[in-house]
Design a protein around this nucleic acid. Sequence first.
DNA 1: ACATTAATTATGT
DNA 2: ACATAATTAATGT
Length: 254
Amino acid sequence: MELACNLCQNLVMDGQAPRKTLPRLDESLLIHLPPFSRLAKRQIRTILDQATSRRYDEGAAVFHEGDPADRFFMLLDGYVRVIRITETGEQVTALHIPAGQLLGFARAIGRDTYPATAVAATESIALSWPTRLWDTFLADYDGFATETYKTLGYRMGEMNTRIVELATQQVEQRVANALLRLINQTGRKVDGGIEIDFPITRQDLSELTATTLHTVSRLLSGWEKRGLVESRRKRIKVCNPHALVVLSQGQASD
DNA sequence: ACATTAATTATGT
DNA sequence: ACATAATTAATGT
């Protein structure tokens, strides 16, 4: 896929790099992102001057579970999947992070290693800073703390509801809910409905919902016949969100 | 109400 | 042509 946003031109073209080896990052990269939006230009400037930008191919790991959390990240473009691996080698997907959010800020929750692995779900671009700057970011930059705790709280809330789902709902409602969340968070409006903005396989969906790819496949096929969704390989489009909502609250027993 | 196994077909490089 | 993804049926818990 192509990265056609203005961010990427900025990062890829090295223009006439002045005295630095790296192209100077433009302030417009951060000015609109919530954690930085209330900062003055020169603050953003110093933040950017301390940042490293990097591109990640689809499937490339941003960081690994258990690694020393030496850097934290701001995702500028793309999507990142946060996964955990069990002893038996099965993957469990915790959540997806869209562009514009922080990730890997282990320091904020009092850890010195990453609690999970982050993998680029699409080709992605992220800025990163050494973790030792985290505390100064919190102290020096107005709104940074509240915004990060907001996203932290949001993610905890989501994991919370997912736990409840796993414990109480059955498979059909679980994948319906997972789909709904995906189109809410990372949905892109297309003509026939809303499509998940990154390649996602049945296997991925099954890892999100603690089921098998076969069950997911069957469910999607069934929904497709009823006109609820449309899917081709690695692409899922939701045509009738409301019907999915109805399904997601389906009857509790028998 | 599901998973597992296995066989088969489709799809993208 | 090859690997990966998706479907489908049959069988198991």
